[in-house]
Amino acid sequence: MTNKTVYLVDDSEQWLETIKERLDVEDIQSETYLSAVALIERLSDVDTAALRGCILLDMLMPDMDGEQAFRQLTRMGVHIPIAIVSSYVDGKRTAMLRQAGIADCITKTDRRLFEKINTLLELDAANPPA
């Protein structure tokens, strides 16, 4: 759990598969979850302070959307960078989420998606847990 891991959460299995494949190519460890609830259950038994890496949350999901998941994870003590990934990105909403602590908001069509993931990992590296 101390290795850098990208936690991918999206209700599209194909999307998760593509991104994970891309991360594998880049030798970046990743875990995929089809819902935010599944990720939260996964992390409920671990030392969240020891987590390293970042989390990518899809905004629109059936059970719990990205914003709700972010708040829940924050309450659980997850400190690694969390980003929202969505087909649409609202500037106002982005500002609000950033203010709440979201590291970034990324569109799915963004060709620089992996650069931004790397940026998130660097951000996590620059802020190791105390």
């Binding site: 194909q14 593509t18 891309r22 629109l60 087909s87 649409y88 799915k108 060709r111």
Partner: peptide, 20 residues
């Protein structure tokens, strides 16, 4: 349109893998 964007995004990421 949202779904289209999702698929297009998917295609974009897949095309990156293809390019690689």
């Amino acid at each position: 349109l949202h779904d289209i964007k999702h698929e297009v995004g998917h295609a974009v990421q897949r095309s990156e893998l293809l390019k690689r």
